[in-house]
Simulated scan of single mutants.
Amino acid sequence: MDAMLVAVSLLDVWIHFDSEERLRMACALLAALSLVLRRRLPLATFLLALPAALVGDAVLATLIALYTLASLSRRRVLLALCALAFAACDITWWSWPSPEFADLSDSSDLLTVTYSLATAVAPVFLGQLVQTGRELSLRLSEISEAREHERRLLAQSVLAKERAQLAREMHDVVSHQVSLIAVRAGVLQVGTRDPEAREAAATIRRLSVQTLDELRHMVGVLRASGSRPTELTPQPSLADLQRLVDTSGIEATLRTDLPDDLPATVQRAVYRTVQEALTNVRKHAPGATATIHVHHADDTVHATVTNASPTRPALPLPGAHHGLVGLRQRAELLGGTVTSGPTADGGYELRLRLPVQDQDTP
């Protein structure tokens, strides 16, 4: 832009070129070349360009310098003085080097003065308008950022209230009921003489205590809203799969063939998939056996959980049917898939497929 303005100003000098007027030519060239300083030194640029308006009619560079000064300066008195100085130079240039005062009673002189004043005021008004528009745009941007920040704060406040309410409900209702289950299971374990009933009571009590620990941790995480990130629970890995199968209460067979350096996200996804599949077997296929096969091939982890047909009717248990949906969402986040469906012998099969490359999701 500066180069273009200098070129246009030099063209203006060339149009008004007069080889006999070296002083006018020097002032005009100085005004045109001084425009390279207009952004850093706007007042100095205007003062260097002003003599061109006094000694000649190549005033484009002076007008550009005056506009630049008006667009960058907030000093209205200085701008008014600069405009008057330009108008005075523009009025007297034709009588240079013996300037004469204009006779305002003469219509031609009055017209000349009016034209010179209008020519001086126009770049000042335009520069101030551009400066006001620039400041208004900046202010609108600041207002938008402030509103966005306020919206985020409001969303965080609402989320914090919801998390606090959820934490209270989990602590007051769910934890209380699970505690009662653990206590009643402990009483049954001590009071019964039936070995099977005692083992079942011990399993119920152990699972209840484990659930209580996880609930307490989750309540603490929910109440720590706004603080540093915290893991929801101690995250399981493939090393915990055998214990999961052994404590599932299902006759299940586990076969694994996986490397030890799999990403933690993949290990958690496999664990949660097997956990959900075994839970569904307990709920919907009582008495059925299950087979879990987890292996690695072609940079992909495959996990398959297959159960036979149930041997007794399933009990009506409450459920929101969100388990498989959650597994599919988890797999999609990691670039994998989850498929499921009935088998030919009346059982059910759940299949997980996960790529193991570039798994950086926390």
Results as ranks from 00 to 15, higher is better:
Ala3Cys: 12
Ala7Asn: 12
Leu10Pro: 01
Leu10His: 07
Phe17Tyr: 14
Glu20Pro: 02
Ala26Asn: 15
Leu29Trp: 01
Arg40Glu: 05
Leu43Met: 05
Leu43Ala: 02
Thr45Phe: 02
Leu48Gln: 06
Ala49Lys: 00
Leu50His: 00
Pro51Tyr: 08
Ala52Pro: 15
Leu54Thr: 07
Thr62Ala: 04
Leu63Gly: 00
Tyr67Lys: 12
Ser71Leu: 03
Ser71Gly: 14
Leu78Asp: 01
Leu79Asp: 12
Leu81Glu: 12
Ala83Gly: 13
Leu84Ala: 13
Phe86Asn: 05
Cys89Gly: 08
Asp90Glu: 07
Asp90His: 12
Pro97Ser: 08
Ser98Tyr: 15
Ser98Asn: 15
Glu100Ile: 07
Glu100Val: 09
Ala102Leu: 14
Asp103Trp: 05
Leu104His: 00
Ser108Cys: 04
Asp109Ile: 03
Asp109Trp: 07
Leu111Phe: 02
Leu111Ala: 10
Thr112Cys: 00
Val113Ile: 11
Thr114Gln: 13
Ser116Arg: 07
Leu126Met: 13
Leu126Asp: 02
Val130Cys: 03
Gln131Gly: 11
Arg134Phe: 01
Arg134Leu: 11
Ser141Ala: 12
Glu145Pro: 11
Ala146Ser: 12
His149Ile: 15
Arg151Gly: 10
Ala155Glu: 14
Ala155Gly: 12
Glu162Ile: 12
Arg163Ser: 10
Gln165Leu: 15
Glu169Tyr: 13
Met170Tyr: 10
His171Ala: 09
Val174Trp: 01
Leu180Glu: 02
Ala182Thr: 02
Arg184Asn: 06
Val187Ala: 07
Gly191Lys: 06
Arg193Phe: 03
Asp194Arg: 15
Arg198His: 03
Glu199Phe: 09
Ile204Met: 13
Ser208Ala: 11
Val209Trp: 08
Asp213Gly: 09
Arg216Ile: 08
His217Thr: 08
His217Ala: 13
Gly220Phe: 13
Gly220Ile: 04
Leu222Cys: 03
Pro229Ala: 05
Pro229Val: 00
Thr230Trp: 13
Thr230Arg: 11
Gln235Arg: 15
Leu241Arg: 01
Gln242His: 10
Arg243Pro: 11
Thr247Met: 10
Ala252Asp: 00
Thr256Ala: 06
Thr256Lys: 06
Leu258Lys: 10
Asp261Gly: 14
Leu262Tyr: 00
Ala269Cys: 14
Ala269His: 05
Val270Trp: 01
Val270His: 04
Val274Arg: 00
Glu276Ala: 11
Glu276Trp: 08
Arg282Trp: 01
Lys283Ser: 04
Thr289Gly: 07
Thr291Asp: 14
Thr291Asn: 13
Thr291Arg: 09
Ile292Ala: 00
Ala297Ser: 15
Asp298Gln: 14
Thr300Lys: 06
Pro310His: 07
Ala314Gly: 11
Ala320Cys: 10
His321Tyr: 10
Val325Cys: 03
Leu327Cys: 01
Gly336Leu: 03
Ser340Tyr: 13
Asp345Met: 06
Tyr348Ser: 04
Glu349Ser: 02
Leu350Lys: 05
Leu354Met: 02
Asp360Met: 05
Thr361His: 14
Thr361Trp: 10
